[in-house]
């Protein structure tokens, strides 16, 4: 999922950085004093959740959970996921520095879209109904992320097209896993702490 330095063309890198800066600014605006600790702790938990490896056949995938991050954080998912990516790049060497903006948009924009589309739906009806919509949202956010990754690669040059297609199809199992896990996570949250997803969540 991480794009590295040197692969993308300059316009894509700059465009990504500008878009990320805009998203982060919007996200920070939505954070008041009372929400800073919440956003920080959630950002840390998504960082930790990405350590979980879920077995699938002979291999395993690690979770991304950007859909769930969007559902809980709204626009604040932009700065929260940016912080996560920054820490990953600096301390673990994943991703890159100049592509930080592009990577942030690729992961955080689907999160915000998921929140806009599914945010109200998961709060409605029975917990199981909410969980189903949560699952659809989880799959949607991964699909959107891979589509964005493929798009950024394709915009940088035709020679990346096969790689872009490969990225998309290789992530179909990941979409399924994320859907199931997001669904169950929403189910548990709806049962244990229903106020987590306010009914009047404005999109």
């Amino acid at each position: 999922m991480h794009i590295v330095d040197g692969a993308l063309s300059n316009p894509v890198v700059i465009g990504g950085a500008v878009a990320a800066a805009g998203g982060i600014a919007l996200g920070l605006k939505s954070l008041d004093i009372d929400r800073i600790p919440t956003a920080g702790v959630l950002s840390a938990s998504f960082f930790v959740a990405s350590l979980i490896h879920v077995p699938i056949g002979p291999s395993s995938v690690h979770l991304i959970l950007n859909g769930l991050a969007g559902l809980l954080l709204g626009w604040a998912a932009f700065p929260a996921l940016f912080v996560g990516l920054l820490l990953q790049a600096v301390f673990f060497g994943f991703g890159g520095l100049t592509v930080l903006g592009v990577n942030t948009v690729n992961i955080a924009l689907p999160a915000v879209l998921t929140w806009m589309i599914f945010g109200r739906l998961i709060a409605r009806g029975s917990p199981v109904q909410g969980a189903v919509w949560g699952g659809v949202g989880g799959a949607f956010s991964i699909a959107a992320t891979t589509a964005f990754v493929a798009l950024t690669l394709a915009l940088s040059g035709d020679e990346f097209l096969p790689a872009a297609k490969l990225v998309f199809f290789a992530h179909i199992p990941v979409m399924v896993i994320e859907a199931v896990l997001t669904g169950f996570a929403v189910l548990l949250a709806r049962k244990v702490k229903p106020e987590l997803f306010p009914k009047d969540a404005s999109a």
Binding site: V41, L42, A49, I52, V54, L63, V180
Partner: peptide, 25 residues
């Protein structure tokens, strides 16, 4: 079973994280 358990694990972590953040605030 594994996927359901991991899903609950993530959900539980998030619920606890939110409650922790309320205490922090």
């Amino acid at each position: 079973h594994t996927y359901r358990s991991f899903g609950y694990l993530v959900g539980m972590m998030l619920v606890r994280a939110i409650e922790r953040s309320e205490r922090i605030l």
